[in-house]
């Protein structure tokens, strides 16, 4: 997304000294050259505004037919209408419920398993190749199977979200755990701590910022799998509304919902990032 790391962009370091004159002309572009935060935001906002204007112009001057691309106004009006008649709220409720359960189930299982296989080679040998194998199977191909197994209710949504995120999470958490410095474990051992305590008091806390990042990234994917599951077989939810709207050529609903999904993703991502800053604030930037 555009506003990926506004904090990192930070204020530009003040140029060495004006006395040095021409010789130290400050570079304003180039690889890795920092820009000010306000400049970063300005550029980011300009891109959004530019795209919005292009959209508005393309529809306003009827360069494209409204059935393909409705105007921003029509999309906004349609979303407002769905919001007031309660449809939007019901769709949101159904989708958020599904993603929460599916994602929590996947995370609750993937974290302990990832920690285990990241720490013990025997467990890694037993689980890692298998997980690696499954994760390359396309999630989309599981949709028909998931319907056969679990019908078209919420369980099937949980299942698709689970298949889509769990296997990736396991490998990423394993990686987070393996990045724990070997000396941290050496420290635990020189202090005479048993493996179990080294795991709970050193390995897990040390890997936690990384694990949090894994959760944040996989939550983004979970949205995709949720909508996929709802597009194919559902009677409620954001994805379902999009499919139904296609049947009735309600392009404005489709576009409105797609934008909404983008916004929801962006919001959850920013919330996770903000929490990360609060939770791990004392750790500087991840080691």
């Amino acid at each position: 997304m555009s506003a990926e790391h506004p904090a990192k962009a930070g204020p530009a370091p003040s140029s060495p000294s004006p006395v040095a004159g021409k010789a130290t002309r400050r570079r304003s572009s180039g690889i890795g050259v920092p820009i000010s935060r306000s400049r970063f935001l300005m550029i980011a906002v300009a891109v959004f505004v530019g795209l919005g204007l292009a959209w508005w112009a393309a529809t306003g001057f009827e360069w494209v037919k409204p059935i393909f691309l409705p105007s921003p106004g029509s999309v906004a009006a349609q979303i407002a209408k769905l919001a007031t008649d309660g449809t939007l709220l019901l769709d949101l409720q159904a989708s958020i419920y599904r993603i929460s359960i599916g994602f929590l189930l996947a995370s609750a299982l993937s974290i302990p398993i990832g920690v285990l296989i990241g720490s013990f080679r025997t467990w890694e040998a037993a689980i890692e190749p298998l997980v690696d194998f499954i994760r390359y199977m396309p999630v989309v191909a599981f949709v028909p199977l998931s319907i056969l197994w679990a019908g078209t209710g919420d369980t099937q949504k949980f299942l698709i979200i689970f298949i889509g995120t769990f296997f990736q999470q396991v490998l990423m958490v394993m990686d987070n755990v393996k990045r724990v410095p070997a000396d941290f474990i050496g420290l635990g051992r020189t202090l005479g701590l048993p493996d179990r305590k080294i795991l709970t008091r050193i390995v897990v806390p040390s890997a936690l910022p990384g694990i949090w990042d894994t959760l944040r990234i996989s939550l983004g994917w979970a949205w995709t799998w949720l909508v996929l599951a709802e597009l194919v077989a559902a009677t409620s939810g954001l994805g379902y509304r999009i499919t139904v709207s296609q049947r009735y050529f309600q392009t404005n609903t489709i576009i409105g919902y797609i934008l909404l999904l983008g916004m929801l993703g962006l919001i959850t991502d920013q919330v996770m990032k903000a929490l990360e800053k609060i939770l791990f604030r004392q750790e500087g930037h991840s080691q």
Partner: peptide, 29 residues
């Protein structure tokens, strides 16, 4: 036979646990 509290080790890499303060790092040991 194994690592133990009779030998204190100071690693080159400091190995302070980043989620604990200076005092808590010592208290941890």
């Amino acid at each position: 036979l194994q690592p133990g509290l009779d030998r204190g080790v100071v690693f080159q890499s400091y190995t302070l646990l980043p989620w604990l303060t200076a005092r808590q790092n010592i208290e941890f040991a």
